[in-house]
Design a protein around this nucleic acid. Sequence first.
DNA 1: CTGAAAGCGCTTACAG
DNA 2: CTGAAAGCGCTTACAG
Lengths: 340, 340
Amino acid sequence: MTITIKDVAKKANVSPSTVSRVIANNSRITKETKQRVRDVMEELGYYPNFQARNLVSNKTNTIGIVMANSATLSFQNPFFPEVLRGISEVAHDNQYGLYLTTGGTEQEVYDEVVSMVQGKRVDGIILLYSRKNDATMNYLAQSSIPFTIVGRPFENPDQFTYVDNNNVDNAREAVSYLINLGHKRIAFVGGGLDYIVSQDRLKGYKQALADANIPFDERYFINEEETASLSREATIDLMTMTKPPTAIVTHDDLVAYEMIRYLEELKMTVPEDVSIVSFNNHKISEHLRPPLTSVDISIYNLGYEANRLLIDKINQPDIEKKKIIVPSTLIKRGSCKRLT
Amino acid sequence: MTITIKDVAKKANVSPSTVSRVIANNSRITKETKQRVRDVMEELGYYPNFQARNLVSNKTNTIGIVMANSATLSFQNPFFPEVLRGISEVAHDNQYGLYLTTGGTEQEVYDEVVSMVQGKRVDGIILLYSRKNDATMNYLAQSSIPFTIVGRPFENPDQFTYVDNNNVDNAREAVSYLINLGHKRIAFVGGGLDYIVSQDRLKGYKQALADANIPFDERYFINEEETASLSREATIDLMTMTKPPTAIVTHDDLVAYEMIRYLEELKMTVPEDVSIVSFNNHKISEHLRPPLTSVDISIYNLGYEANRLLIDKINQPDIEKKKIIVPSTLIKRGSCKRLT
DNA sequence: CTGAAAGCGCTTACAG
DNA sequence: CTGAAAGCGCTTACAG
């Protein structure tokens, strides 16, 4: 019932090998034969069976995409669709398909990755996060499958291929911007410190403070998890200190807006009472009130470059390790005020 | 180098058939043999090759997800990650993987779908949209692959398995709500009319008007495409009419906020000058200003149920066609005002 | 309870 | 330029 290469071969009076070569557009087949075989393929409605082809060629034309913990948080993280958009673009241009992990816990994701690698479901993997002591990443590192990381690896960065922003500089610039506006008490709301991106930004934050001879005060530092949701309590605790911050740096625009809401409960307005700088520059942030000052980290490009690097690596297994730093821009809008 | 079933068989002193049966946990194999084989599998680090297994069993344990036109718009549509989250949950519970289309145009998506179906890359498909005269849907309908649709099909709904909201009622309720607040000139900003969801909502809009004996005025109807972005011009044209609307219904929260911004340029405030009701109830909408009155259509559940139906269909090919209507709720917040 | 054999639908050296 | 044969790593009737 399914049309196979044999059916085509018989009808076109050639051998299955020849049909296979026509599919591969092998140059040793005459134009005439090719045409005849193609006509028959069309006529019978032949489509190659990928499973069979994959099995013998040991190739799948599929990229595996690994999220930190998919089912629960990653899908809610606005980073995800945009990075996927970049990945998808390159995948499509290169005739690759996309395969997603669905695991909800770290262990589940790990098991899925091992099984998709060993089970030959994918030709390469994009790890959408970088975290310290991550079992999945360690597994990939010691396997022979091509993979790229979105984010700087925790250790030995030159032994990995990855894309990243310069997160240290980004945070430093954002904080310096606030300092130049006259702010000295600047709170920092970062993602979980397991993630390298959070560590880097914290470092940049500290650098900017040091540059201006402002001592680091731990009480101004809030460490949020990956969810795009901030605890109301944390905000209130922060702002009801004896010396509350006059400015805040957050790790995502949506978190920033949520915070702005909590500030409102405390009768504080942005930017009049508190200034805010954020990261990710969501499409909608320019339209909202206040329009957010935000660091655009080119999420789309992170995905795009990650997949380009990956496909290069799949095509040329011996290519050297490489990193790409995607540029970021601090977009200044109306959520920051100069202190007088 | 790759460990196959044969290597395990040899080392465990059994035949490959037996190893295969152990993997399938066939009840005819003794406990002792199973244990011995499993020990060897563990020892050698054996993993089943999915391509080989899929080829013979004609099963992939993979669900194909088809977006309207992936690369460009769908990823920017906030609907996407949330519906994917629901799909992913069920996929994971049932040990299915997720395979995404990446095509940018209708034709590309169509070709991808045909190739993934004929090429046996997936066991079933979820169509994330319903559109009239859609070639992809027509192809699926005449193929024998199980598929479900998120959205009511254009024709012969009882010949399809799908999930949907009651979009007619949703729009009717939203509009009636505004009418009850005293609004008579109510604009309707819907998605492209190719999409059934847009048609249904337009119908509900008209019903609500008719219920209140308000004539339908075409000039209050704006037809936007799938992008989560509204043209500034359309808004301005609408609001500079001699008799501009006093209330607006939009098809997505982000579009609503963008509109609110354009209204501001015209010195109009929500809800003081214009009331707005929207759809989708984004997580952030309750935190923004104004907090949006929005119809929560349970996007997660749409994805969840779509995949449940699909997997049922895969497991029982002869199961009857089915539809599931996911309930919606109008969440009343601060973006609407009673007219006095 | 287990094994030998055939076969899933392809690709690719090896011959000619 | 094309074909016959072997093989990719599995599963599953068929025997025993």
